Simulated scan of single mutants.
Amino acid sequence: MMKAIIQITIREWKRILTLPVHYLVLLVMPALLFAFYAYIYQARNARDLPVAIWDDDRSVLSRQFAFMLEQTESIHITRQVDNQTELETLIRRGEVAGAIHFPARMERNIKSRHPVYITVYTNAAAIVTAKLIYKDAAQVLMTAGSGVILQKLVKLGMPKDKAMTLVQPLKLTSYQLYNPTFNYQQYLVPGLIFVALQMMIIMVTVLLLNYERKTNTLEELHQVAKGSAFVAITGKTLAHLVVGWVNFILVTGIVLPLFEVGHPAATGTLFVVFTLLVLACIGIGILVSAIFKDVMVACDLGLFYTSPAFVFSGFTFPRWAMPWYDQYYAAIMPFTFFLDAFFKVYFMELPLRYAYTEMGYILIFIVVTYPLAIILFQRQLNKLEVQHA
C-alpha cells in the first residue's frame, strides 16, 4: 500500500507541474499575488493625510494649534476653508480626508475657562484614516488646551503641581498592542495571503477526482491505486500538502522578510496551524470533487464557498456583531478558526497550546471530509471495475 501511495503522490506532482489548472493556481499565481499584496501596502502607515482648517477664531492660539496639528504623523494641513459647505465639498471630492473647525472667540473662552467646542470632521467611509486623524487631533487639542489653562493658573501664582492637578485631574495612559502604528502592511498582508491560499487550494482540489474523468485518466488512477480510494486520496493529499508547504516557505521565508513584514519567532507554531488548514482545505475540495462529477459545477461551488471567507472570518469586523446566520456560515469555513489561531500564535506570539481549541475545530473538518470522500470515491471506483468486468 505504501508503495502505491508514493506512486500516486509522484503521479500527482507530475500533474501539478504539467496541467495549467494546477500549476498556474498553485505555483505561479501565489508568488505573484503575495508580492502584489505586500507591494500594495508598501507605504505601511497612513501618513500626512490632507486636512483642511476652518478657523473662525483667527487668533494667535488657533495658529499655534494648527502648527501643533501639522507636527503629527497623520495630519498635513493643505487647505484653509471659510464655511462648512466648502469643507464638505472638499471631502466629497476627495481633496481632503478631514477638517478641523476652530470656533469664534476660542482663545478668549479657553483662557476664561468657558466651554469650547472644536469640531473634527472626518470621512468615515475610510475608517482607519478617519480614526488616525481624530486620534492625533484629539491628543493635540486636549493637551494644548490644558496647557493654556495651566499657563494662566501658574501666572496667577498657583503652584505648578497643584495647577496640573486642577487642569488634568485624571491621567490616562493607553497601550495599543500587536499593531500599535496601525501598519496596513504588517496587519493586512499576512491575512490576505492566507485567505488567498485557502481559496487557491480549494479551487484546485475540487478538481482532483472529477478532472481525472474529464482528462480520461480515471482508469489509470484506478490501476495505480489498485482500486483503493484510500490510496488515491492519500497520495493526492500528500502531494498537495507538500505544495502547500512550498507556498508557506515562499511566504514566511521570502515574501514577508523581503518586505520586512511578519514575526519570524512565530514561524514554527504558525507552520503547525497552517498544515492543519491545508489538510482541511484539501479534504473539503476532495469531498466536493467526489460528490460532483461535473467539473464546472464543482468549480462554481468552490468559488461560492471560498469567496466570502475574508469577510465572514472576522478579520476586519467581529463575528459576534454579525447576524446569527452569518456566524453559522463563518463556522463552516476552516479559515475562520485558522484566523483565530493565527492571531494568537502570529500577532501575539503565544505558545501553541493557546490555539488548541481552534486547532480542534479545524481537525473536525479533516475527520469529517476525508472518510466521506473515500467512501464516495470508492463507490465510483467499484462501478468502474464492474464496467470493465
Rank of each mutant, 00 (worst) to 15 (best):
V288P: 01
I233V: 15
D56M: 13
I193Q: 10
T119M: 07
V189T: 12
I91Q: 12
G314Q: 09
A373H: 04
M164N: 11
I291P: 02
A99V: 06
N247F: 07
K155P: 00
I53Q: 06
M348C: 04
A163H: 09
T78G: 10
F34R: 01
L303R: 07
A298Y: 01
D56P: 00
S307T: 15
V81N: 05
A31I: 14
E88M: 13
N382S: 11
H22Y: 15
M359I: 07
V368H: 05
Y356M: 08
Y211N: 14
N183R: 09
I10P: 01
Q380V: 10
L166S: 14
S174H: 11
L32W: 08
P50V: 04
T217S: 14
T165Q: 15
P115K: 08
S62N: 06
E385A: 10
M359V: 03
I375P: 00
L188I: 12
L287C: 04
F337A: 03
K293A: 13
L33N: 01
Q151T: 12
V206G: 00
P103C: 11
S313K: 06
R113N: 14
R47M: 11
R63A: 15
P323V: 10
F34C: 07
A341W: 02
E349Y: 01
C281M: 09
R113I: 12
L276I: 08
V148R: 02
Y121S: 04
I201N: 05
Q151L: 04
P30Q: 09
